[in-house]
Every structure is written in C-alpha cells, then in structure tokens.
C-alpha cells in the first residue's frame, strides 16, 4: 500500500514528469518521421501546382511556396491545350465510374444476400470463385479480353469498360456488404417474414435501408476502382475523345513538353475526390478486404 502511494507521489514530481517526456521523445521523432515521409509527396504535388512554375524549375527548388499562382487550374480547362483536356477526361471518368457503380451495386446486393443467409450447398465453391477473381491480376487476362472485344468491335466503349471493371471489383464489394448484412440481427428478418414479407421483400424493406452506410461504402469502392483503373482503360480505349483520366494523365507524363504545373494540377484535381471519399468509408473497406475475405 505504502509502496503504491510512494509511486503516486513521485510520479507527480516535476523531475519524473520531465524524465517521462524525455523518454517519449523517440516516439514523437518516429511519428514525425513517418508523417513526413507519408505526406511529403502529396505536399510536394500541392506546392508544385500553387507556386509559379519558374520556382519549380529553379535549382534548388524552395521547400515551401514563395508565391501563389492558381492559374494552372484555369489553364487545364482551356481548349488551346492541344494535348487533350483534363476536364473532358475527368468527365469520361465520371461517366465510366457511375456506370460501374450502378452495375456493381446491383450485383453486389444479390451476392451479399446470397452469402448472408443460411448456408447452402455450394456456398463454399461460390466463395472460392469470388476469392479467385479477387486474387487474379488484371494483366493476366488483358490479352484474351482485348482479342475478344476487338473481334466483337466493342473496343472504345465506356460501357463495356465499366462491365470489365465491375468484374474485378465485385468480389470485394460483396464481402463488404456481406459483413454489413451479418451485423443485422436474424430476429429482425424473422419478424418481417412473420408479418408476411417475402424474402426479397425482407432484402428490399429491411436489409437495404439498414445497410445504407455499407451501400455507400460499396459505391465508393466501385466508383474509385473504375476511377483509378489504368490497364484495361489503356488497352481498350484508343480514341482520344473518350480517354479516361488515368489514360490521359499517363499520356501527358510520356510527353516531354507538358508543363509541370498543369500536369500536377490535373493530378491533384484527379486525386481530391478519392482522398475525401476513401477516408470517409475507410473502416468498411478495411473490414471488407480482410475480415470479409477471411470468412470464405
């Protein structure tokens, strides 16, 4: 007892407090180092956009913006830019991602409802099919898909690209929504059934309204999968008119004379939406990618 008291009194004395602070310095240094390494590239992108391009092309470039010039954001929307216009590309990406989201939401609801109920024969096989699809690298089937779509004259078609993108993100979306469905108590469904609801009615009237956050998470994941997707977009879209933003930006990287501030402004504009939305739905996505996949 007296021992505990002694600890309590010494802990509050200024010397011990100082010592405790000194002990914590390595932690703070490490955290700071981590944060700097993580944030610096994004910070640098912002700096390269908002400072006049002359500063970026000085050597050594200043570590913080010495002047602010927001004209790159205006310039990337101007038609004289013969490299193509980032606003059109982003428009195409919005169309593509919206289509992907709609197709994916529809199929995800079906799949998650199939997995969320009582176990059925073949469920394990269905789970394995999803897992295999989730694991499959896109690049391994880009050749046959390209060949087939070329033969069927379905290249340069954003809707077809949306269908392809859905195929790859669907498994993860199903796991995410299944996890959410699993948190809904069985009693709730049973009660609705007793009240005369059909099982599709339970899905429509009970499950979906309760799982709105999960549906939002699925929508965000599907939307930004298509938003980021480069490989299929680059191989299936050759018409500059319907370039998606990743393909357009990649084309800009490979052109030597693209002004760096505009390139960065395009990149920043492209990143803002995913940054905001991903951080909002983060916990659903992490759970879906791990816990969801674990329960095959």
């Amino acid at each position: 007892m007296s021992n505990q008291q002694a600890i309590a009194t010494t802990a509050s004395s200024p010397g011990i407090l100082l010592l405790r602070w000194i002990r914590r310095i390595p932690l703070y240094v490490l955290v700071l180092l981590f944060c700097i390494i993580t944030a610096f590239p994004i910070y640098w992108m912002v700096v390269s956009v908002i400072q006049p391009v002359e500063y970026s092309l000085n050597y050594p470039p200043p570590l913080y913006p010495l002047a602010v010039d927001l004209s790159p954001f205006r310039e990337i929307f101007q038609a004289e830019n013969n490299l193509g216009r980032i606003d059109y590309w982003i428009g195409n990406s919005i169309v593509l991602s919206s289509m992907t989201t709609l197709i994916c939401l529809f199929l995800t609801v079906l799949g998650a409802y199939a997995l969320a109920g009582k176990r059925w024969r073949g469920q394990g096989l269905f789970g394995l099919l999803l897992l295999m699809t989730q694991m499959l690298p896109e690049a391994l089937i880009v050749i046959p898909l390209y060949a087939t779509l070329d033969k069927l004259n379905l290249k340069n078609n954003l809707f077809v690209l949306a269908l392809v993108d859905t195929a790859f993100i669907l498994p993860i979306c199903i796991w995410i929504l299944k996890n959410v469905f699993d948190t809904i108590p069985n009693e709730m469904r049973d009660a609705a059934m007793v009240d005369g609801c059909t099982r599709m009615g339970v899905l429509w009237r009970i499950m979906l309204p309760i799982s709105t956050p999960g549906l939002v998470a699925v929508g965000v994941v599907a939307f930004f999968h298509a938003w980021n997707e480069y490989l299929f977009a680059a191989s299936l879209i050759s018409n500059k008119e319907i370039y998606t933003a990743p393909v357009g930006l990649a084309a800009m990287i490979s052109m030597v004379d693209t002004p760096i501030d505009r390139l960065m402004a395009g990149g920043l504009l492209f990143s803002i939406f995913p940054l905001i939305f991903y951080l909002l739905v983060q916990r659903y996505v992490v759970a879906g990618l791990t816990a969801g996949a674990v329960k095959g």
């Binding site: 944060c35 993580t38 640098w44 930004f224 480069y230 995913p274 951080l279």
Partner: peptide
C-alpha cells in the same frame, strides 16, 4: 491527425502517385 496523415497514400490514386514521384 497522425493517423489521418498516415492513411493518405492508401487513398491517393496510382496515376498521381507516379506523377509526383516522377517529378520528385
């Protein structure tokens, strides 16, 4: 704040990642 900062790269799309590292 530190947690939010450390999550950033995960939400940052691939293309801008290449873009900015290319420049750095």
């Amino acid at each position: 704040i530190a947690r939010a900062v450390m999550t950033l790269p995960w939400a940052f799309p691939d293309l801008p990642t290449v873009l900015v590292f290319y420049w750095i």
